[in-house]
Amino acid sequence: MTTRENISDTPWAGDDQAWWDWYMSLANNPPIDPVRVEPWPVRPQGGAASDQEVLVSLGTPYPLTGDAVEYFRVNGYVRLPNVIPHAVLASLFLRANRLLDREHGSTNPGRFLALEQVWLTDPLMRGVALSRRLGDIAAQLMGVDSVRLYHDNILSKEPGCGRTPWHRDSHHYPLDTSAVCTSWVPLHPIPASMGPLACLPRGDAADALGTIPLSIEDRSYDDLVEAALRSMGATPDATEYAAGDVSFHAVDCFHTAGPNHTTTSRRVLSSTYYAEGSRVVEQPTVLSGSWTTFLPGVEPGGLALSPLNPVVGWSPST
């Protein structure tokens, strides 16, 4: 695993959006050429499901195949088709837009916007974060009896926003376990020009990246990762997302996401899950952001358990 020894353990002093503004500055992003910006229609076709229909759908089991589980365990990520019905997606899309616009306004060119812990205040977003459909997938992929929620997000890569810096989630989540994974739920189709999630499969290339020391002072870490991938001829999987697709990536999965060259916001819901019984690391770093917001009352080294971390998924045998 990438060394964290040079990363400050001073707690993050700002709010979550300030953390994201800072974090995106660690990616080596040339200015986006306006000539390449193109429109992309993202509003889902057809009618939107009612709130009750959304909750029922998100509570229905997904037919996860053995091949999908094996792919995740070999590669550290998997993309699953038709996880979210289109009418449900339309409802979530409209609600996420409303919440983001209320918090940030409707025009934020070049920024990466985030809303975290929205499940605490919005019933529809609560349905996503506490979804048995998604939580059970996470438990099955990781092969654990049950998973708890770390936090949820609405993530919006605004028009002209650059690439997300290369990272593993183990850089950020202060959890002393490898049984952590994150769902990535696009609220609309995501073509290459909009910046889909790009995951590097486990293997020699990912292992080589693990020897690169982290830096939060500048863009050097992102540069070194990019250079290493070029020298090895390694290419991440940046497959476009169709409406309804959902991906899950493990805590050790190296990933990035491309720039948004379109004139429309790229919007995604995301939740992170960890195995029940996990503990917090002894020395969380500044890369963990406002982690005490997600684990209130939990001390470093303590059991990762608070009222904000309900069990949300089980393996079929439990």
Rank of each mutant, 00 (worst) to 15 (best):
169 D>N: 09
23 Y>C: 01
151 H>I: 02
150 Y>Q: 04
19 W>A: 02
114 A>Y: 13
106 S>R: 12
312 V>A: 02
31 P>Q: 12
278 S>T: 09
232 M>F: 11
56 V>C: 12
318 T>P: 04
149 L>Y: 05
271 S>T: 10
172 H>G: 05
183 S>Q: 02
281 V>M: 10
139 A>Q: 10
253 C>W: 04
92 L>Q: 02
308 L>W: 15
215 S>G: 02
237 D>N: 12
188 H>W: 02
101 D>M: 13
24 M>F: 14
317 S>G: 13
19 W>Y: 15
101 D>T: 14
65 T>M: 12
106 S>A: 14
57 S>E: 11
172 H>A: 03
83 V>H: 03
232 M>L: 15
221 Y>S: 03
75 N>A: 00
2 T>D: 05
295 L>W: 04
210 G>T: 08
170 S>I: 13
88 V>E: 01
139 A>F: 14
1 M>T: 14
133 R>D: 03
174 P>N: 07
83 V>G: 02
167 H>M: 04
92 L>F: 05
13 A>Q: 11
77 Y>I: 01
298 V>Q: 06
111 R>C: 01
304 A>R: 02
26 L>A: 08
243 A>P: 02
287 L>D: 03
167 H>L: 07
61 P>A: 07
60 T>Q: 07
114 A>Q: 12
79 R>T: 08
304 A>M: 03
263 T>S: 11
110 G>R: 09
137 I>R: 11
279 R>A: 06
170 S>R: 15
316 P>W: 12
128 V>Q: 01
283 Q>H: 15
26 L>R: 10
212 I>R: 10
89 L>Y: 14
151 H>P: 01
259 P>N: 06
62 Y>P: 00
170 S>W: 10
36 R>T: 11
198 A>C: 07
187 L>T: 01
103 E>L: 11
92 L>M: 09
194 M>V: 11
153 N>C: 08
207 D>M: 13
142 M>W: 14
258 G>C: 06
251 V>R: 09
227 A>F: 13
191 P>D: 02
72 F>K: 05
197 L>I: 12
52 Q>Y: 10
231 S>I: 03
141 L>I: 07
149 L>A: 08
243 A>M: 01
128 V>K: 11
128 V>E: 00
68 A>D: 05
300 P>S: 08
220 S>G: 06
135 G>R: 12
74 V>P: 03
180 V>P: 00
